[in-house]
Computed example of a mutant assay.
Amino acid sequence: MTENTPATGTAWLDPADDAPELTEELADVAEISIGGKVIRPATGYLGPNGVVKGRPPLRDRAKQQVTLRIDPDVLAKFREGGPGWQGRINAALRVAVGF
């Protein structure tokens, strides 16, 4: 017969423990729904530092998504700098065309 052993692994954590604290500011912009029916739509969104009212402002010209083939060594060089490599490529292209 086998012997009973205690369960192994980590203890269960309540996912609500990671939820942000419900503040007045958050409640003011949150969507309210009852039974799946939206009573009041959201009027803001959660930004990195808390609640931000409305949609983030667009620049004077929104960027356009394109597909571009770049030599692997050139791409590797831009990626060496870490996050933001797409923006660095954009800045280099602006310099190349004279902006």
Rank of each mutant, 00 (worst) to 15 (best):
E3Y: 08
N4Q: 15
A7I: 07
A7T: 09
A7E: 06
G9Q: 09
A11S: 12
A11G: 09
W12E: 13
W12D: 04
L13V: 15
D14P: 02
D14H: 01
D14L: 00
P15R: 01
D17P: 05
D17Q: 13
D17T: 14
A19R: 03
P20L: 09
E21F: 13
L22V: 10
L22R: 07
V29W: 07
I32C: 06
S33V: 07
G35S: 12
G35K: 07
G36E: 03
V38P: 04
R40V: 08
P41Y: 08
A42W: 14
G44E: 02
G44S: 03
L46A: 03
N49A: 09
V51I: 08
V52T: 12
G54E: 04
P57T: 13
P57S: 12
R59V: 12
R59T: 10
R59N: 12
D60Q: 10
K63M: 09
L68Y: 11
L68S: 09
L68T: 03
R69C: 08
I70V: 15
D71Y: 02
P72T: 10
V74D: 14
V74A: 11
L75Q: 10
A76L: 13
F78G: 00
F78S: 00
R79Q: 12
R79I: 01
G81H: 08
G84A: 13
W85N: 00
W85K: 02
W85Q: 02
Q86F: 05
Q86M: 11
G87Q: 11
N90E: 14
A91D: 05
L93A: 13
R94L: 08
R94H: 07
A96L: 05
V97M: 10
V97K: 00
F99Y: 11
F99N: 04
F99R: 02
